[in-house]
Each structure stands twice: as structure tokens, then as C-alpha cells.
């Protein structure tokens, strides 16, 4: 049995080193002379957060919330559900907690612990967006974009309502860099919605098939260090299409023997 899932992408956002949003990314793409910024994103605005929450929340939460806010834009987010996916979670926070536990376990910070849950960004987003809708937080490994997209597409299908997908990972810290390397901060968000015939804009068509996925790289070869450096940057080829690049077919692994075949195109 082969099910085809459809969605329109009605909003998108991005936060990456040196590039604060999709418009900045579009400018960068248009200028072949510019080199790719690397490392950490300086200071994600996350302006939707209440100042007290924003102060306590770590950089990983700011990054995810900033891109989520960009994708939702001026729409009312109050009943939009969301799937947040991060391969490695908040690596600097995990490194700090593990370091404290090894040295002086009684000194674990309650704020750090509260933010160590993988759904910290989802929880903060529900507050910032005043949304009581269902929110999930997934971790599906370095190739998590396939399962995360599939989960979000299933929500769109089941609810016939928009669904926010946020992919984010932050640069590694401490000894964790040995095994879960992540060289740059990167977050991307897509607001998916049921397809309406004749509506212009980017569209997805997905199927689950048996087989092994092939590697898909961004069109712009300059993006390769992000693409290989951060699991969330698997979304880059989709963002290129949102910004007008030609249609493409992708295959992303879902498990050891299945893949998500995705056709993405921009309907003028």
C-alpha cells in the first residue's frame, strides 16, 4: 500500500550563522561573491517570548522560536500544532549538566534541568504563541528530517489544518563533540498546510517507499559545510525551492529499509 501525502508550504523561516532570516538567506544566495558564515548564530531575536522567559531560556530555544515565528509570520498561531525536531537537543546544556553531575551532583541547576527536556522549545513556543494545540518533540538522529517531515505531513492529513515543522540543532560543546559533531547553529521552520488547487507557492508530495536513500545536497555548493555540519540543515534544499529554485525530488531515510520520497516544487 502506497500513500501519497500532500502539503503546501505557506511559510518558512531560517536562522543560521550571520543570516537572521529567509530574506537575508535569499540575499546571500543571490550574491555568489559571499562566503558562507560558520559557527554560532549571534543572537536569535525570539521576540515573541515574554522577556522573563527569554532571559532564562537557552540559545537553543531562542534559535528554534525565532525560526518558528518567522514561518508563522502574522498569522494567529493559537491553534496551529507543531512538530519540533532536533537530532541532538541542546548540546551545550547537556554538556554542562553532565559535567556538574560528574563533579558535584547536588549543584545541578534547576533552570538547566528544566530546560534539559527535549521539548523545551515546543513548550516555550506554546507559551509564546499562546497555542494549546498538540506539539511534539522528536529526535530521529542525524537523518531526522525524513521522520520529522513524515510526522508533520501525517498531522496535516489527519487534522486538515496547518502544521508547523521546526528543525533545529545547535553547535556542539565539550566532549560530546567527539561523537555527535555539530559544527554550526542552524534552524529552519516550514509552515505546512493542506493543498488548495491553483494556489501558488511551494508544494510537497511525499511517499514512503522501501529502499536506501541517496545523498541530496543543496544546489548551491557553498552551502555544503552547513549541510554536513548540522542535521537541521537537511532542510536547505527545501528552503532553496521556497526561494524560487527549480523543482526537485529527494529521498530521505526513515529507517534502515524505508525512505521518504519527496517531490518539492514551486508553483508560480
Amino acid at each position: 500500500m502506497s500513500t501519497t501525502l500532500h502539503a503546501a508550504i505557506i511559510g518558512w523561516g531560517l536562522c543560521a550563522p550571520g543570516l537572521d532570516d529567509a530574506a537575508a538567506f535569499a540575499d546571500w544566495l543571490r550574491d555568489p561573491a559571499r562566503a558562507l558564515p560558520l559557527g554560532r548564530h549571534a543572537n536569535a531575536a525570539a521576540a515573541r517570548m515574554a522577556p522573563s522567559e527569554r532571559r532564562r531560556a537557552p540559545h537553543a530555544v531562542h534559535l528554534a522560536l525565532e525560526t518558528a515565528a518567522q514561518a508563522v509570520g502574522a498569522r494567529d498561531a493559537a491553534s496551529i500544532g507543531a512538530v519540533f525536531c532536533s537530532a541532538f537537543g541542546d548540546l551545550p546544556n547537556t554538556d554542562a549538566i553532565l559535567g556538574t553531575l560528574a563533579q558535584a551532583p547536588e549543584q545541578v541547576s534547576p533552570t538547566r534541568f528544566a530546560h534539559s527536556v527535549h521539548n523545551a522549545a515546543a513548550g516555550h513556543w506554546s507559551m509564546a504563541a499562546a497555542s494549546h494545540a498538540a506539539m511534539s518533540a522528536l529526535a530521529c538522529g542525524r537523518e531526522g528530517i525524513g521522520p520529522a517531515l513524515l510526522a508533520a505531513l501525517l498531522e496535516v492529513q489527519a487534522s486538515a489544518a496547518p502544521q508547523l515543522l521546526v528543525l533545529s540543532d545547535v553547535a556542539d560543546a565539550g566532549a560530546l563533540a567527539d561523537v555527535v559533531p555539530c559544527s554550526v547553529d542552524f534552524a529552519a521552520a516550514l509552515l505546512l498546510a493542506p493543498v488548495v488547487d491553483g494556489q501558488p507557492g511551494p508544494r510537497l508530495q511525499a511517499q514512503v517507499e522501501d529502499g536506501q536513500a541517496s545523498a541530496d545536497a543543496p544546489r548551491d555548493a557553498r552551502l555544503q559545510p552547513w549541510y554536513t555540519g548540522n542535521p537541521a540543515a537537511r532542510a536547505l534544499p527545501l528552503l532553496e525551492i521556497c526561494l524560487g529554485a527549480a523543482a526537485r525530488r529527494f529521498t530521505w531515510p526513515l529507517g534502515s529499509g524505508t525512505l521518504l520520497t519527496l517531490h518539492c516544487e514551486y508553483r508560480p
Binding site: F88, G89, L138, A139, C140, G141, P147, L254, S256, T258
Partner: peptide, 23 residues
Amino acid sequence: HLHGPAEWLCAHTGIAGPAFTVS
């Protein structure tokens, strides 16, 4: 990483379909 146990469980049981970790 959080998906580690799911990867291990798929390898251990032979599950080859989509694998998710909800956290």
C-alpha cells in the same frame, strides 16, 4: 543522542520501517 535507543532497538529486532523517538 536521544534516537540512539531507537536505532539500537531497530537493529536488535529487525524493524526496518520508519523509526521515531518522541521526547
